[in-house]
Every structure is written in structure tokens, then in C-alpha cells.
Amino acid sequence: MDADNQTILEDIFRAVFELDETDRIESIKRNNFPAWDSMAHVALISAIDDEFDLIMDTQDALRIDSLASCISVVERYLN
């Protein structure tokens, strides 16, 4: 994934989970971050759909549990 798209994903994470610039997004996992509940997950997928103009499949959406997995899933759609 190119740097611009990765920045967009990082910005989405910061906006959805209300993170500061200093927070390390890479360390956030769905199972270790209480703010990442089902509603936040839906908001995350909705924001990604909007920013990248795609409609993510439910199975792909469920695979996302970190920034790394998110980059991997979105990259497939962009390619």
C-alpha cells in the first residue's frame, strides 16, 4: 500500500477511536483495546468504505482486527 493510503487509514483509526497524534496505532488490536467495540468496528468499516469508495464484504470486515490487517484487506480492494 502506498504511503498516502496508509496515512488515510491511520487518520481513520485516529478519528474513529479518538486517538492522539502520539498514540501508537500499530499496537492497537481489537482484542486489547476496549474502545474497539462492535459499534466502533462498524464506524471503522463505514469510514473506510467512504474514504476508499468501496463496499467491503462482511467476511473481510470481520477479518480486520488491527491496522496491519486493515491495510492488508483494503490493499486487496484497491488492487
Binding site: S38, H41, V42, I45, S46, A47, I48, D49, D50, D53, L54, I55, D57, T58, A61, L62
Partner: peptide, 15 residues
């Protein structure tokens, strides 16, 4: 977005 609606009850497509 039917997938989102079925999965989470959220019917509006993000985009």
C-alpha cells in the same frame, strides 16, 4: 448496504 445491515443493523452505506 445489505451486508452491513444484516451484520450490524446499520443499513446505510458508508460512502
Amino acid at each position: 448496504n445489505l451486508g452491513s445491515y444484516l451484520e450490524s443493523g446499520i443499513p446505510l452505506s458508508g460512502k
